[in-house]
Simulated scan of single mutants.
Amino acid sequence: MALTFKLLNKVGYSPEHQWNIFCPLAKLAFAQCTPRMHSSSYRRPGVPPDNTPPWKKIDFNFQKGVKEVKKHFGLLKKELVDHWTGPEGRPLVEHILEQTRVLWEFRCQQDLEQWVVSSDQEIGGRSEAYLKLGKNNQTALLCGTLNTNVPRDGETRYSGYCSMRSKLPQAAFNRLKHYDWSSFNSLHLRVRGDGRSWMVNLGTEMYFSHQKNDLYNYFLFTRGGPYWQDVKIPFSKFFLTSRGRIQDNQQPAWLDKINTLGFTLGDKVDGPFQLEIDFIGVCNDRAHTEEFAYEKYKRNP
């Protein structure tokens, strides 16, 4: 890095131009040298670290290996066919004129397997969360019990959350893949809740590995009762947080680098909860022209 700046100084680039040149170089270096880290590095207090060698964690199963090879070659074939068809496997005309897109529907058990449910039990809490099909097998029902009792480990100060998030998209042979929502400006949900307030989370690809805990969040207010509600949340309303703390330096989300979508409940109210979801999609609302809802102030040096 120092050698790069020395060469740019000799050529006569200003510091601003040097930084604009260095940012893509740094991104490429981290992409090549640093693995994609999205799993939590949290370890419960009092639990010894896992020093098991990596080769002992591998399950040498021939039948499973053949199944995985077939799966990845099938994904590779689909990628090649989609590449010649058009963006994301659809014709170019359809991609340009598309105004709405349904991303997730919940009509069978396989649709639920695309999501991961978690709670504060990972840190010793007592909350419970379950994801199952609705009564008519046409919706997803996230239900459970929220418990804010703090585990007595001497370090944890807060507890009481339940969440569900979509699994990371992967291409053939576990290559990086992202959702591209750059043609849309709003998130469209059809939900039925119990009156609680939820947090909608967007996980995007970041420049550096230490930004793995960054998320874009916005609120989902459910009415409760027997009626469904259609919710449209503009992407310009999502604000940047890191480990739950709102950041001073706000910037719009990269809609062409979306990794995950999730829902989190942590309203500090003990008791049962439920959130029923019909579908999750994106749309292009022509009436919404806002680019970013939050102002950025220049701090006095």
Rank of each mutant, 00 (worst) to 15 (best):
N300W: 02
Y13F: 15
G195H: 03
S118G: 03
G195Q: 08
I96Q: 06
A2C: 07
N149I: 14
V116T: 02
H288F: 14
V191E: 04
Y158G: 05
N185C: 06
P24D: 14
E98Q: 15
V93L: 12
P87Q: 10
G89D: 04
P301Y: 10
G160Y: 04
W254Q: 01
L255M: 01
C283A: 15
K296G: 05
Y294I: 06
L8F: 09
Y42M: 11
P24N: 11
D50G: 01
D214M: 03
S182W: 00
G154T: 11
R126N: 11
Y13E: 09
F5P: 00
L103G: 02
G281P: 03
Q110E: 15
K57I: 05
D267E: 09
G266F: 03
K177H: 05
D153V: 09
G154I: 09
S182L: 06
R101K: 15
T289D: 09
F22R: 11
Q99V: 11
R157D: 11
D270S: 02
G195D: 07
R196W: 05
K57N: 07
L28C: 08
T52R: 01
P15R: 14
L28F: 09
I277F: 03
F235I: 03
F30H: 09
S236Q: 05
S236M: 02
A287K: 13
K57G: 08
L275P: 01
E94Y: 02
W181A: 09
Q18K: 15
N249D: 08
L3W: 04
T100A: 15
M199C: 12
R286E: 15
P49D: 13
R243L: 12
N51F: 13
H83T: 13
L97Y: 08
L265C: 02
L97I: 11
S41D: 13
F263R: 03
W55F: 13
H17W: 09
G193P: 01
K78E: 13
E79T: 10
L75E: 08
L80A: 14
E16F: 10
M37P: 00
P91K: 02
W254K: 00
N20D: 14
N201G: 01
T85H: 06
I280R: 01
I21M: 15
E122F: 00
K57Q: 06
G271R: 03
C33K: 12
K257C: 01
N217D: 04
N9K: 13
V269Y: 03
R243Y: 10
S14M: 10
L240A: 01
V282M: 04
V150F: 08
L255P: 01
N9L: 12
